[in-house]
Amino acid sequence: MDGRASAMRPWLLLSPALATVTLLLVVPVMFILVYSFWLRTATGADTSGFHLDNWIEVLTDPFYRDILFKTLRIALVTTLFCIVLGYVPAYFIAMSRTGNKTLLLLLLILPFWISYIIRTMSWINILGASGGLNSLLLTLGIISEPMRLLYNEGSVILGLVHFLLPFMVLNVYVSLEAIDRNLLDAARSLGASDLQAFREVTLPLSMPGLAAGALLCFVLSAGTYITPVVLGGPRDAMFANLVFDAIITQLDWPLGSALSIVLLVVLGSVVLVYNRLVGVGQIAKSFG
C-alpha cells in the first residue's frame, strides 16, 4: 500500500461518521448562515441575495445585546448553583457502598424518563398562587395572601437548576469515582485531616468533572427557550426566545437565522475557551 492510500485510511474509516455529521450538522448550519443574509420584505416574501441588514440590526441594536448579556448571566448563575448543589450528592453517591450506588444513580436518572416540559411545569403546581407552597403557608397562617413566586428570573433559574442538576451530579460523580482511594489513605497517613485530604486530593482530582459539568450546564441553560416560556414572565425572555419569536411568531426567518448564528458563535467560543483550559474529552467520560 503506498503512502497516500494509507494516509487516506483513517478518513475512509471515519467516513460514515463524517457523512452523518456533515448531513445533520454542517449542512443545516450552512443553510442558516446563507439565510441570515437574505431579507424579509414588507410583503412577507424573502428576497435572496447578500444583504447585511439583519446583521447590522442584530449587532447594533442594544435590545439584542442586553438580552444576550442577561442570558449569559442567567446561565452563569444557574451553573454556579449547579456546582454548589451538585457536588454534595455526587460526593455522597461516590462514597457510598457499591450496592447503594446503583440505586442512587438510578434515582438520579429517573427524572429523565419524564418530559423536560412536564418537569418544568411541575413547579407551577408548587410555586403558583394556589400551588402547594402558598396553600401550605396560607393554611398555617404564616402569610395572609399568596406570594408571587413564579414568572420572574428567580423561577427561571430554579427551573434550569432543576433540569440541569443531574448532568452536573453525573459528571462530578464520574471523576470522583475514578479517584484511587489509596490516595486519600496516603494523604491521611502523611498527616492530613479528612478535610485537608479532601482539599488537597479529592477536590483537585474532581475538577475535570466539575468543569465538564459546568460547561454542559452553561451551554444548555444559555440555549434554553422552554424554561423562560413556562416559568418566566413577559420580561424574562432569553436569547433563544428571540430566535423563536423571530421565526415562529414574526415568520422572519432571515433575522432568526442571524440571531441563532450569534448564539452559536458565543456558545462555541465558550466551548473553545474551555477546551483550551480543560480539554473537551472529559465530557465524553460521563457518558462512557
Binding site: 484511587d180 489509596n182 490516595l183 496516603a186 498527616g191 492530613a192 482530582l205
Partner: peptide, 18 residues
C-alpha cells in the same frame, strides 16, 4: 490515622497524580 506518624507505601504507589 493522621496523628499516628506512620509511613505507608502501597502496591500501586498511590502518588498524587496532580
Amino acid at each position: 490515622i493522621h496523628k499516628r506518624n506512620l509511613g505507608l507505601v502501597f502496591q500501586n504507589y498511590a502518588l498524587f497524580p496532580h
